[in-house]
Simulated assay, not measured.
Amino acid sequence: MKHPLIFDGHNDLLLQIQCGSVSAGEAGFMGAGGRHVDLIKARTGGFAGGFFAIFVPDSGDASFLEEMMPESYDLPLPPAVAWPQAMQTALAQAATLISLERQGALKICRSASDVRSAMETGVMAAVMHMEGAEAIDPDFETLEVLHAAGLRSLGPVWSRPTIYGHGVPFRFPSGPDTGPGLTADGLRLVKKCNEMNILVDLSHLNEAGFWDVARHSTKPLVATHSNAHALCPHSRNLTDRQLHAIRDSDGIVGLNFAVAFLRKDGRMKADTPLARMLEHLDYLIDILGEDRVGLGSDFDGATVPDAIKDVAGLPALRKAMQTHGYGRELMAKLCHGNWLRVLEQTLG
C-alpha cells in the first residue's frame, strides 16, 4: 500500500548528511542512501515529504539511543550550545536543504499550497524546521534570514536548555513537569513566530514551557513528534491535559515512531510491534479527534519498529492501519490531510 501518501512531522536527515553518514549527492540521498530517508525508499514507501529538521548536535548526543535500554533511566543533558557554533551548524544544514532543492530532489515549501502542489507533481515536499533555537539570536536577525530561506517551523528547545526555555530530559518513568518554562526571550520568540507565520513546535518542551506557549500563542498548538504519556510514561510524551489543550486549539500531534516513546517499558528496542503504534493512534484520536492526529516519525533520528525500518517500510504501517479498521477517509487524514489543515491555519 503506497497510498494515501504520507506527509511526516519530523526527520533528521539533514544532520545525517552533515555528519557524513549519508551523501547529499547521487550516491546518497538522490540514489540508494543508507539512512531512513532517500528518494528511492520514498518512492517505494509512498513518502511525500515532511518537516526536515535543522538540529545542532554535540559530542554527547550519539549515545542517547543506546542508553535508553534499562528499566529506568535519567540521562544527563548536555550543556547549552553557544550561538556562534549553533548558527554555523544551522546555516550549513539549511544550505544542504537548499542544495537538494537545486538538484531537483525536493521542494522547500513555504505554505500548505506549496506542499499540495509538490505532492500532486510527485516532488518531495520539505518544510524547513528547526529543532532547538540555539542558532536564533535574541534580536531575531538569524530568524529573519532563515525565514527568507524557507524556515516555517521552530521548536524553542531540543531537550537541552536554550536562552528561550527548557526541554524535558530523557527520563523514564517520568512526567513532563521537569523544570521552569519559557524565559522572557522565549515568550518574545513565540510572539515573533506568530507574527511571521512560523509554526511553534511543542515537542521537547517541558510542561511549564508547553503551558507558556499555550497561554501566549495565537496559533494552533502543535507537537510534531510526540506520543501519549498515558500509554508510555516517558518525559517526552504528552499528558491528557496537554492533549486536551492541543484539541481545544484545533492543533495536531504527530505520532513519534521512536520505540522508546511507544513502549510501556520505555526501552529503545526495535522489536516493537506495529500494534503498539496503533494503540497510541487510537488513544490520540479518542482525545484529539480524528482531525488532529498525524504522523511524526523521527526518521533518521531514532530507532523505529523493525516492521517499518525506514520510509520504504511505510506500506506495512498503512496495511496495519487498514486491517485495524481505519477507513479510507481517516487514513487520508492521518497520513497527510490533518497536517495540511494545520499548515494552512499556521503558515498562511
Rank of each mutant, 00 (worst) to 15 (best):
T183Y: 01
A230S: 07
H225Y: 08
M130I: 12
T178A: 08
A228D: 05
E131W: 11
L202T: 06
V157M: 06
A208V: 04
L221D: 02
N194M: 01
G175F: 09
A208M: 06
F257K: 01
P161Q: 00
L151S: 00
L205G: 05
L202Y: 06
I163K: 13
V168H: 01
L189N: 11
L255E: 07
S235D: 02
E144S: 12
L146N: 02
S226L: 15
D201L: 14
L231N: 00
L189W: 06
F140C: 02
G165L: 02
A208F: 09
N237G: 09
D185M: 05
A258I: 10
L255T: 12
D240I: 10
A245R: 11
V190Q: 00
G254H: 12
N237S: 05
S226F: 14
E195Y: 03
L143S: 04
V157S: 01
S249I: 09
H225M: 10
N206D: 03
L189H: 03
H225L: 12
K219G: 08
K191T: 15
A184W: 06
R247W: 09
S159N: 15
S159Y: 13
D240H: 15
V200E: 01
G179M: 12
G132E: 03
P161G: 00
L255P: 07
S217T: 15
G254C: 13
S174C: 10
E141F: 14
N197T: 02
D240T: 11
L182D: 00
T224E: 05
T178W: 03
L202M: 12
V200T: 09
L231E: 00
T162L: 13
N227P: 13
F172W: 09
G150D: 02
E131M: 10
K191V: 08
H216S: 12
G132P: 04
P233S: 10
A214R: 01
L187A: 04
D240L: 14
P156V: 00
G186L: 02
E144R: 15
D137L: 10
I136R: 06
G167K: 04
S174G: 13
H216P: 07
D201A: 12
V190N: 01
L187H: 08
H244E: 13
R241D: 14
D139Q: 15
E141S: 14
P156H: 03
V222T: 03
P180A: 09
D212F: 03
E134T: 05
A223N: 08
S203I: 08
G155S: 14
E144D: 15
H225I: 11
A149P: 05
T224G: 12
M196A: 05
H229F: 15
F210D: 00
R171E: 06
A228S: 13
W158Y: 06
H216M: 12
G254I: 06
K192F: 10
T142F: 12
M128F: 03
H244I: 15
G150I: 09
D185V: 10
V190H: 01
L143P: 02
W158M: 07
F172M: 09
S235F: 11
L255C: 13
R160D: 04
N237D: 03
L202Q: 07
T183H: 03
D212A: 01
I163C: 09
I246M: 10
F172E: 04
E134K: 02
F140H: 11
R160P: 12
M196G: 01
N197Y: 11
G175V: 11
F257V: 05
H204G: 01
V213Y: 03
I246R: 05
G209K: 00
R188N: 11
L146I: 02
G175P: 04
